[in-house]
Design a binder for these strands. Structure first.
Length: 415
DNA sequence: CGGGTTTGACCCGCGC
DNA sequence: GCGCGGGTCAAACCCG
């Protein structure tokens, strides 16, 4: 039994029955309630057993916490949008609020185990000032999809036991469980500016009619696919010279194409694991080639493959990384086999790895995209794994369990 | 020979 | 219907 099985985090990612309010809808209602008290009546229909009278006078975080009957610890949020220009459709896609997380906290772990954000005692979210450098940050969008941005100029080093590596290196996964967590987090900021910013984001999204793909998802940023929208999608932006950072899984490149708006070709990869349909495509930022935009489409339902010719102590895939093409004329074109792992950048560092210059991530979960098929045993990567995590954060676990239970109770949402 | 990349052709959805 | 653009296929090729 995985230590996180008790949470069943993201066990099922199908939020949405049409009759049940989505978490976003719920939070939007909470937003409105900030400015319009009677909207709370709507919410009271959803949470009839909660006493929201006092909540109307408290912050939204407190109200959310009260409704889910758990105390959500406050988070530090800053207003920043430093990477807005890095995407092909930069201005409308990048929202502003950032959540700060501590250095050394794996973004993939963050996505897979969002409950850790709630840990009030382990202090996962310290002040960036204390880190002496640009903070890690998680960004949550005010638009119809979740966005998270993680940046950290400090070397990342996940302080986890080695046996946890596979879980935390297995690549990013985000589902709407994460989304609601992030949404709840961001709502902690009872700030007019914050709310206005939220609206501005929506306005910006709506203000770009020239992008035909956008309307499909109600203004959500649709970077890429026109057809393969049947699985969840996570977009990560990494500042790296690697053109395919190692994420612990093995990928086979099956295509490359120059897409509109970006002179840098996009490479398409499939997971080589049999019966695994996870794909990803990788492209350089249109405006800043330092940044690599990796889009994961789908969720691995298997363990990361053992590295060939290496011990079982770590994932040292020879094939996870390659410099397949010199998009920026900074590296020589290399055909055939990728460079050795020593040249490859590990996307998700482990505790065994030496500190690396992992700098920036950008993650986007398109909440509007259809969720994964309901499968009680799937939903996030490696959910079926034997327990590899012996560091459990009880408070966070309980918090998330409470959220899950409450959502299940009130919405019939099975997480 | 197995497993990877390359690359042009093709497929398909969408907007006009 | 047509064109555009993103995604995929598959033969050719590369490499250890």
């Amino acid at each position: 039994m995985n230590a996180f099985d008790g949470n069943n985090i993201g066990m099922t990612t199908c939020w949405a029955s049409p009759s049940s309010p989505s978490p976003r809808t719920l939070l939007a209602m909470l937003n409105q309630a900030d400015n319009n008290g009677h909207v709370v009546d709507q919410i009271s229909e959803i949470f009839p057993q909660t006493n929201h009278q006092s909540e109307q006078r408290s912050g939204l975080r407190e109200r959310v916490a009260a409704r889910i009957e758990f105390n959500l610890p406050p988070l530090e949020i800053q207003n920043n949008r430093p990477f807005a220009a890095l995407f092909r459709n930069p201005s409308p896609t990048v929202p502003s609020p950032l959540l700060l997380i501590s250095p050394g906290f794996s973004p993939s772990a963050m996505l897979q185990f969002p409950n850790r954000f709630f840990d009030p005692t382990h202090r996962i979210l310290p002040s960036p000032v204390a880190n002496g450098g640009p903070p890690e940050a998680v960004e949550s969008s005010g638009a119809d999809h979740a966005m998270m941005k993680v940046s950290n100029n400090d070397p990342m080093h996940v302080a986890l036991p080695p046996q946890q590596d596979a879980s935390f290196e297995s690549g990013p996964a985000v589902n709407e469980t994460d989304v609601i967590n992030m949404e709840i987090e961001r709502e902690n900021k009872d700030d007019e500016e914050y709310m206005e910013d939220d609206h501005n984001i929506v306005d910006e999204l709506d203000a770009e009619p020239s992008s035909p793909k956008r309307s499909k998802f109600g203004g959500a940023t649709m970077i890429g696919a026109t057809r393969s929208c049947k699985s969840q999608r996570v977009i990560i932006q990494v500042e790296t010279e690697e053109n395919n950072p190692d994420d612990g899984f093995r990928w086979r490149k099956y295509g490359q194409k120059v897409v509109k708006g970006n002179p840098n070709a996009r490479s398409y990869y499939k997971c080589t694991y049999s019966a695994c349909n996870v794909k990803k495509h990788v492209e350089r930022g249109a405006e800043d080639v330092k940044f690599l935009l990796i889009t994961y489409d789908g969720i691995h339902e298997h363990d990361p493959p053992a590295a060939r010719g290496s011990s079982s102590s770590g994932l040292k895939s020879r094939y996870g990384s390659s410099v397949s093409q010199d998009y920026n004329n900074h590296q020589t074109v290399r055909l055939g086999r990728p460079p050795s792992s020593s040249q490859a950048m590990r996307l998700f560092p482990s505790s065994l790895d030496p500190p690396m210059d992992m700098t920036q991530f950008y993650m986007t979960g398109l909440a509007k995209l259809p969720s994964l098929p309901v499968n009680q045993n799937h939903g996030l990567m490696n959910r079926n794994e034997e327990p590899k995590i012996d560091r459990v954060i009880p408070d966070g676990t309980e918090v998330f369990k409470g959220i899950r239970d409450r959502l299940n109770l009130n919405f019939g949402l099975s997480l």
